[in-house]
Design a protein around this nucleic acid. Structure first.
Lengths: 242, 242
DNA sequence: TTAAAGTACCCCGTAACGTGAGAGTCAATA
DNA sequence: TATTGACTCTCACGTTACGGGGTACTTTAA
């Protein structure tokens, strides 16, 4: 495919493709005698990756690093992008909520703190570092996946048990004794499998809400369980931290 | 409030606030004798507006124009931003769908056309022009162009042909042989472009009714055609599923 | 075979800040 | 009261990711 075909297909400019070629980010597989750039299907797949990363706010330099990395795994990348996009979607939903509230606020229907007026804006100034380092970072292999694959039926049953019992008491306050006891067990149990730091544990709880694959699975045990566990886990961590 | 307080509250940098002051986009209501910028609550509201517009991809110059405009109405703006954010959310959802499909594609579970690999990316390169011009517009918009851009004239004609022929027989029962034959063709034709699963196909039919942009377009070929197609498509899917 | 459309390369422009540098300001503490 | 550390100010140059114009060559459709 020639530049314009590609450009039109994906909705970017020809200049952008030139630029990506210039900086070595996406070099067409072939060039004709006249110097025309010819893009292969593989090139297109790479371009898709590039655009996903770009959408997520990665600078081109970083994108190049990532896709050039020998340890780069497309599927893994896609899965990360998937999670990040879900987060991004969440942020958008928050902003939408903020707008709705602001409209009501304007009509004098409700009150709004200054802080509330900006929920959803903050994207932490380098949203990706967090996750990206985890994945392609210095070390940090995907040990979670490994373990999950090897999970025995026994472990699986234990998981379910935790969820069921928590679902049963999800009407209680997240910081009640009963709930916190369960959460403690949950933490200990998880630590048998993989070594979760307190922060990681809290992060996991957040994932229950952020990632709808988690949410879905967990909520099967009871409506709103994911959110409930997220809160309870957060309380647990904050308490045990200091 | 002083710069850093504001910056921290909303999640932007101090430099950004300086910049906005420089270009006259957000001038603090007050400055101390020492030259410190002091932001008022009203300033914060303006800032919120600015950030919403920025999120939507508006260049700062345009934002300035808009907020400075005498006809600027905050509530109206918020409502527009609300609509645009919803669209943006839609786009994100499409991208998420694309990622999910790509993962499946990678596993060899499904096929994907090149075109499909990029659905959700194209934001027409100036996403705001669409609505913004409508509201604060310099001139008229051609919104039809936007949609048809990605479609060849040939495809377009085929689309129309389907709608016309279906409109012609919309007095028949949705599960009649003639109708179902047309729907089958319709399904095959759509599969040439993107890969619709049966469920997705049914979902599409539902969209014809739910989303008034679809409804409008389709009903141009005949009153009630959208609803008719929705039903017929549903019948078709249910029949072919098991 | 000729006009229109596409492509290449070059190079300057720009938007929205980032990033010091150097100097003054403010509030809490020793 | 003096000091310290966190903030603040104003230049001013740097950066990123292209946009856009100009000019010359190539391809393609009529």
């Amino acid at each position: 495919m020639k530049v314009k075909e590609v450009a039109d297909l994906v909705g970017i400019s020809v200049r952008t493709l030139h630029h990506y070629d210039e900086i070595g980010l996406l070099i067409p597989e072939e060039t004709t005698d006249a110097g025309y750039r010819i893009y292969s299907d593989e090139n297109l797949e790479t371009l898709q990756q590039i655009l996903f990363f770009r959408e997520l706010g990665f600078p081109l330099k970083k994108i190049k690093e990532i896709i050039d990395s020998p340890s780069f795994d497309q599927q893994e990348a896609l899965e990360m992008q998937h999670r990040m996009l879900l987060k991004e979607k969440n942020r958008l939903e928050q902003m939408i909520g903020t707008i709705e509230k602001t409209i009501q606020h304007l009509k004098g229907e409700i009150h709004m703190s200054n802080k509330e007026k900006f929920t959803g804006f903050d994207f932490s100034h380098n949203p990706y570092e967090q996750e990206a380092r985890e994945k392609w970072g210095d070390q940090a292999v995907d040990e979670a996946n490994e373990k999950a694959k090897n999970m025995t039926a026994f472990d699986q049953e234990k998981f379910n048990e935790v969820f069921r019992s928590l679902a049963a008491i999800r009407h209680l306050s997240p910081d009640s004794k009963e709930v916190q006891e369960k959460i403690t067990k949950w933490h200990l149990f998880l630590n048998e499998m993989r070594n979760y730091s307190l922060d990681a544990f809290k992060g996991l709880g957040q994932m229950y809400v952020d990632d709808e694959r988690f949410t879905k699975n967990i909520d099967q045990f009871g409506e709103g369980l994911a959110k409930f566990m997220c809160t309870a886990m957060s309380v647990y961590v904050d308490r045990n931290k200091k």
